[in-house]
Every structure is written in structure tokens, then in C-alpha cells.
Design a protein around this nucleic acid. Structure first.
Lengths: 210, 210
DNA sequence: TAGATTGTTAATCGATTAACAATC
DNA sequence: TAGATTGTTAATCGATTAACAATC
């Protein structure tokens, strides 16, 4: 937080977090920028530059404490703060996320799900109640969730995002294969676009590039 | 293909493809770098630089033909080539991808699925046969799929990736929340890490940044 | 022709890498 | 102390933006 942290660094922070957590699970307590860099495919220099964005945490001659680093990164990313979320669209993907994804690991609590299918409305999935999608606005105005997860068909993405924004949502996690950015540009959107990812893989295969 | 295309450009190509396809569906046949840039949140200059990586396609005074651009990008990304894939792990996520994701739109044909659950082995999901995971190596050696999709539990990710690489897989589409890059660095890996994405959103929310 | 917009070169900006003194 | 590794500055590299002549 001391210095300005660039987008490029922010995008790497989750990877550091994942790798450091893995190291911690293996019982590693200290690591050098060189070792960590090798593990992640970064230069030692870059690792040190990145970590220095949020204050020197290393010890000259020894390296960085794994635990301290994880805590630091968690703080920067806001993983240690309690946040709430709702999910809209309980098809296969929505269900997959509700059943398998650990919101808790990132400090999120999934409070409610919404769908239009009468068969699921009123039920509970992984302990989360499913409501009628027509009640989304009402619910959000009352409970003020922080994040909306969009796992619904693309054609409903914009109107739903619009409702969420109206209700003061703080961020949108967008799984529909369309860009929301510009229409609602005061609300941060994080996209998970399967299709774009597979297109990049298609390119990499063709070129034999890594 | 004429000039070297940088990683940054490649990452933008799928977005151009998506936006141009949307425009085409709306009946737009020509677009200027300025308009397209505004739509996507890029400068006109950047759009022109990007397109010029693979040969000038615009017409001075008029703009770019939407169709020609889509074709060009499809060619660069290799979307027009027929590719095959297998998916390993038919939990909620695997099933979601099999049922909802259009491999065909990206030129892929999903040929087989693998799982360890006796209840699904021998069945068919969205027209794709499900085989016993123990037969993965045998299948791949015989059919030589281009891409392996990993939607299985993290702890099996590495051994499975290892088998796929042994069998000459050309690329891995990795949905497990772990990095495969370095262990198999001759095979391109494209990661879809939900957790990393949500962490970035968590950061954006905290900072109020877009 | 006049207006618009590209293709392309030059200028700027930012991110990565290298180097090294500070210090544990 | 000697060895190792950080913190940090300087150098390099690459990507984005600006500018403008070419031309449809």
C-alpha cells in the first residue's frame, strides 16, 4: 500500500499467494527470491521488485518469510476482509461453482443464488438458498452484497448487471462470454472467459510456442 | 504471420474476435479503429498497431471490413483448423463445460471424457463417451488428441498432465487451481484459475479501482 | 476534390532486468 | 568474519500513444 502497485504486479499477486501457500503446506518457512522465481518462471529481480511494492519484507542474507509474505499478500488483495456474494444463474456452471469453489478461501461468503427455474427455486445448494430471479433487486437492496457472480445465459447478462449496479454492487465476477466493462465503468468487472482462453491455447498449439 | 506478434497482442486477439463477431451479428460490415477502440476500451492507435501485425487490412478513408478481420483473426488463432480434445474429470465443472461450452465455435471437437466414477463410465454426456480414467494413456496413444482439458481434483492434476505429455499432447487447458507450466515446459498450458480471478476482483473492490 | 481514416514512424511511457552497495 | 541475499538504483527493453503523410 505504501507505493503505487501496478496492474502487472496485482495480476501476479494471486500466483505468489498460491505458490507460497503450497510451500507453506510443504513446511517451508523461508524462501529466497531466486528460488521462488525459479518455481514460478520469474526472475529473482522481478520477485524482489514486486515484493518491494508493498514494503521490504525480506531479510538480507536469508530471504523472505513464507508466512509473512502470505499475510501481506492476503492483506493487499483484501482476502482477510469478510465479503459477501450472490450468484445469478444456476445452470451447470453455477452449480459447479457453488458445489466446488471455495469462496471462503478468498474471504467471501456466498449468501444467495437466483434462477428462473421453478424446479430449483426454494431449494438449497451447498447450504445456499435459491431464490426467484425476479426477486434479485429486492434482495440486493435489502442485503447489499459486495459481489455478483454472473453464470447465466449471455443474453441476460447486461440486464442483470444493470440491476446489480443499481443496487450498489461493488464488483461483478463475469462468467458470460461477453464484455461488460464499458457499460458499467464505475463497477469493477473481472472476467472469466473460457472461450478467449481456449482461443489462446489454439494459437499456442499452432505455433508450438510456450 | 508476416511480422512477429507479441504476447500482448495475442491476448487481445480473442477479444477482437468476440467484439467483431457481435458487430457482424448486428449487421455491421465496416468499422473504424476509432469506433472499435471505443467499444473495447482501447485507443485507435493501438487497434491499428495490432491489426498491422498481421498485414494491413483496412482501407484508408473507410475503415476495416468486419468479415475480413474475423477471418484473419480466426486464421491467426487457428480457429479454422480442426482440432480434437479429451476431458479428464467429470465432476460439476467438467459436466458444465461438456454441456454448455461450444468447443465447435473454436474449431475443437471433444472426442472423449475420462473419470474414475463407475456410475458415469460407459455413459454419454452431450454425445461424448465417458471412459474409465485408467484407459487414458491407452486412448491417447491410439487417438492422439490435440488438447487435454483438466477438470479433475487438483491432486491428480500433475500425474494426469504427465500421462498426456507422454502421449504427445499438444496443449493443456488447465482448470485446476495449480500451476503446471514449469514441470512440462515444452507443452503449452492455458490456465483458467477461478481463485486467482476472484482474488483480483477482491483487490479491485477494496481499492475502488476499475 | 475534400474528408476521413489508414499505415507507419517517432516519442513516450512503463515494466523488466541487471548491477551493486547495504546488511543480515 | 565471510557468504548470501536483500533493497534499490540504473539500464534495457518492449509496449503504448501520438503524429502525420499516404491514400481511398
Amino acid at each position: 500500500m505504501e507505493k503505487k502497485v501496478s496492474q502487472a504486479v496485482i495480476r501476479r499477486l494471486p500466483r505468489y499467494h498460491t505458490h507460497l501457500s503450497e510451500l507453506k503446506a510443504m513446511g517451508v518457512t523461508k524462501i529466497s527470491s531466486k528460488e521462488l522465481g525459479e518455481r514460478m518462471g520469474l526472475t529473482a529481480s522481478q520477485v524482489r521488485q514486486d515484493f518491494n511494492c508493498f514494503g521490504g519484507f525480506g531479510q538480507q542474507g536469508y530471504g523472505y518469510p513464507v508466512d509473512g509474505l502470505i499475510e501481506s499478500i492476503s492483506f493487499i488483495l483484501g482476502l482477510d476482509r469478510e465479503k459477501t456474494a450472490v450468484i445469478v444463474g444456476i445452470g451447470n456452471l453455477g452449480r459447479a461453482i457453488m458445489n466446488n469453489f471455495s469462496f471462503a478461501e478468498n474471504g467471501f461468503k456466498l449468501k444467495a443464488a437466483f434462477d428462473t427455474d421453478k424446479a430449483v427455486i426454494g431449494t438449497t445448494i451447498s447450504g445456499v438458498p435459491v431464490y426467484d430471479a425476479s426477486r434479485l433487486r429486492e434482495y440486493c437492496l435489502e442485503h447489499r452484497p459486495d459481489v455478483g457472480v454472473l453464470t447465466l445465459p449471455q443474453k441476460y447478462a447486461h440486464e442483470t448487471a444493470s440491476i446489480l449496479c443499481d443496487c450498489g454492487i461493488k464488483g461483478i465476477w463475469n462468467f458470460t462470454n461477453t464484455d461488460l466493462h464499458l457499460e458499467f465503468d464505475t463497477v469493477p468487472v473481472e472476467n472469466v472467459h473460457f472461450s478467449e482462453s481456449l482461443m489462446v491455447l489454439s494459437y499456442k498449439i499452432g505455433m508450438g510456442e510456450v
